[in-house]
Design a binder for these strands. Structure first.
Lengths: 339, 339
DNA sequence: TATTGTGCTGAAAACGTTTTTATGTTATTT
DNA sequence: AAATAACATAAAAACGTTTTCAGCACAATA
């Protein structure tokens, strides 16, 4: 690589290195003629500053990093896209690191390649890592973990409220017997959604039959099987509605219901979470709960930049979600129960 | 940021800077005791090497960059995921830059932050940029642009063959009157698909009515409208099959056909391109042509790494695609035309 | 004319590493 | 026992920048 350095430009222009640097960085101390001459030479030589040298000296990268173990799924591309847009607006570059190797991540974080970072968990950044980041005053925002200290914060979805709102919506349609297709019990969001659902039921004094909690593991197939076997075992207590832990579960559920001869939404309402792309194209189009992913991306970058530039403290932000009404739920007019 | 540097470690361990460096980098020249002592001190101080200093000196980053204007859509996450996996296997980190600012991109590329790069076009990297990259011996692989020189190559999908194969498949089902819903005429892939389709028709001496080429712009709505107005204008020559430029167009097409009273696939076959996630969930499930995206990601990284490590030349690789048979096409038994 | 002030530019230090070369010690050979 | 080889460590140079400070013209002041 026959790189042209600042030295070459200096020699070629017949000035010193510092003069070149000043010209390039708009330090207002040079004669207009000197400056324009230097710039002309730099352009002629196709000079591009070496970032490593630059950063080594200045310590600022104007780069934010997003660290994640995966980018699979619509969640990530919406998130990354919105973060990138916000970064651009604020004059930062965004840098996505996809790796499962914690060592790589930590050395990039602490090695000074980015001014701040966004972290999507799963990779077990433990207390010790957090502590050493805190000690070094690393600015970071977490996406699915609650952290709140001097230099680190979180922007998360309030899944409890989401679950609560969803259940409440089904109740408002007149449903009484609402089953839940649970996700993965080790995931925070999954648990929160279920808790929210349970809270809504409790609040309305609806029966909370243990049989009404199925295990769907956030998967279509597992949910299909769970619903199918439930229907066969419990002819006597078919629910009015199913609230599924995510849209895939809802789809599996609907397929199971159809194959057992039920119509959705005429006979039974089904509601999901996430509003995945498929949701609107499915038959029936899925009523679901949508997280404000793009909003999360925007907020996370804003928060990070404020911590960097204005030395603001880290804080916890919770995002509400919105119900997307489509065609998989139906108003239930139930004469005996009406006022 | 109270950063601990190599100097601090040296002082604390009572040895010189170079000894610390050698210990950390496994240069086999130190007494085991010295080495382990230094490592112990380094760990105790929580020392993490500054990457900028490191890179400045060594010139190697062990990082590959992916430069793109957007990551929206399933294509990107499959691609990025597979690139990341391959990078990990080969001992590189992957770094995704999402920006529309060509300046940022060029300065990162030429500024020495990555050892090599993958470029997704749209951002108009012009001949001048390419030339300066070539001069500096930058290693790069392009994803949707044909480049082949000393240090740069491409891995692209052979859309011409894909279009040809798709049309041929429809012909093999017995269809004679095959309409095409065109995409965006300025996009390379779009044009290639259509050319392939036309070639297949020509080869089988099927009629190539200009009216059979509709404009769908790769959009659902536009395709819906195009098909709808076609059907209303040309009752006399309804096609046996539609080949749509992408799956969204196919979906729009099917909706239009249904709303005009045609059944798919019983009356008319419809085929798409891309195999987007929705395709399998749509009713009817879409028969389509799938690109080997994950394969592309793998190949592109391999190629890049071979250019970097083994000084191989850049080359052009074309990826074939595969037909995914689902439920939107039907065998047409046409008595009058059979042998 | 001698002094001070002003405006540009250049020299040199610094950033945190790696790598090359130098130095000093101990072991080996003659 | 002297010369040499082998080894372990230290010192210094280098990577490409930015930045601080010194220096030099020249004009303005006394």
């Amino acid at each position: 690589m026959a790189k042209v350095t600042i030295k070459d430009v200096a020699r070629e222009a017949g000035v010193s290195i510092s003069t070149v640097s000043n010209a390039l960085n708009d330090v207002d101390v040079l004669t207009p003629e000197t400056k324009s001459h230097v710039l002309k030479v730099a352009k002629r030589l196709n000079y591009v500053p070496n970032l490593n040298g630059k950063l080594l000296k200045s310590g600022k990268t104007n780069m934010l990093g997003f660290f994640t173990t995966s980018v699979k799924g619509a969640y990530f591309y919406i998130l990354v896209e919105s973060m990138a847009r916000e970064c651009e607006r604020l004059g930062y570059g965004l840098n996505v690191f996809v790796t499962k190797d914690k060592q790589v991540i930590m050395s990039n974080i602490l090695g000074g390649r980015v001014d701040g970072l966004v972290i999507y968990e799963e990779l077990k950044i433990d207390e010790h890592d957090i502590a050493s980041m805190e000690k070094d005053k690393i600015k970071a925002v977490f996406l699915d973990r609650v952290i709140e200290n001097e230099t680190m914060g979180s922007v998360i979805f309030d899944s409890y409220v989401a679950g609560y709102d969803a259940a409440k919506y089904l109740i408002s349609l007149g449903h009484k017997k609402i089953a839940y297709i649970s996700g993965v019990d080790t995931m925070f969001d999954s648990v929160q959604r279920k808790e929210g659902y349970l809270a809504a039921l409790r609040e309305h004094q609806l029966e909370m039959d243990q049989d009404y909690i199925l295990q769907g593991y956030f998967e279509e197939e597992a949910s299909y099987n769970a619903v199918k076997s439930f229907l066969r075992m419990h002819h006597d207590k078919v629910p009015d509605a199913f609230l599924a832990g995510n849209d895939l579960s809802a789809i599996g559920c609907i397929r199971a219901l159809k194959s057992e001869g039920y119509r959705v939404p005429e006979d039974i309402s089904v509601m999901g979470f996430d509003d995945i792309e498929i949701a609107q194209y499915f038959t029936p189009p899925l009523t679901t709960v949508r997280n404000q992913i793009a909003r999360q991306g925007m907020l996370v970058i804003d928060h990070l930049v404020r911590m960097i530039q204005r030395k603001e403290q880290g804080k916890l932000q919770k995002l509400s979600s919105e119900i997307v009404v489509r065609g998989s739920c139906h108003i239930k007019l139930n004469r005996d129960d009406s006022i």
